[in-house]
């Protein structure tokens, strides 16, 4: 069991990284990765929301929607729950961490529409994970998101000093850099299964 959980956790970070391999949650990835501090704060909020959302949506799907044969309500119910959770996080941050709240700005409510959060809650159902596995998967996905954000914040810092051709300045060169970071993550394919498969 422990090995299976570890496999899920690390493969969500490296092999199936939501941002860099599955291309979910690109909006905050490009929007908030300009500064390391806010990238890190945003990722913490996403980890929190992902874990909480999965912890709430998994029981609701399994114990409410499935017995009533209402699987088709999955998306709409999940969006409702995620929206509530994001609002909750916003209230908590405003109370206890106002500087972070100010730094995140509009991207905090935008977690509501962050497809990575919806993606992780839906994919744990599709994978047929149990509750513990789902939770580990969600936290892993969150940390994967954090890894991508923090790495890319460093890359963008370098980009600021670079002098690309005029037509590449700004977003284009950022996207090119993102694709290269993504390409490097493709290299992790299969590594986790082999490591934990051997144990």
């Amino acid at each position: 069991m422990a090995i299976k959980l570890a496999t899920i956790f690390f493969s969500m970070i490296l092999v199936n990284n939501y941002v860099l391999v599955q291309f979910l949650g690109i909006c905050p990835f490009l929007g908030v990765s300009k500064k390391l501090d806010s990238a890190f704060g945003m990722s913490c909020a996403v980890v929190f929301v992902m874990a909480l959302a999965t912890a709430v949506t998994w029981p609701i799907y399994t114990f409410v929607l499935v017995p009533n044969d209402l699987q088709y309500l999955q998306t709409i119910a999940y969006i409702l729950i995620i929206a509530v959770l994001v609002q909750l996080v916003e209230i908590i941050l405003k109370k206890f961490m106002p500087p972070l709240y100010n730094a995140l700005g509009v991207y905090l409510p935008l977690i509501t529409t962050n497809c990575a959060v919806l993606g992780v809650t839906i994919s744990v159902i599709d994978e047929g994970y149990g509750f513990a596995e789902s939770l580990v998967c969600a936290v892993g996905a969150g940390f994967g998101f954090m890894l991508a954000m923090v790495l890319f914040a460093g890359v963008r810092r370098r980009l600021e000093d670079a002098k690309p051709p005029k037509c590449f300045e700004g977003l284009p060169i950022t996207l090119v850099a993102a694709s290269m970071v993504s390409l490097s993550f493709m290299g992790f394919g299969g590594i986790i299964e082999n490591i934990f498969g051997a144990v």
């Binding site: 609701i60 309500l73 729950i81 209230i91």
Partner: peptide
Amino acid sequence: VTAIIIVTVIGFIGAAVL
């Protein structure tokens, strides 16, 4: 009807929490 009730209940619980 069940679907409507369930989504409404989830909405109300969420609103109450907020």
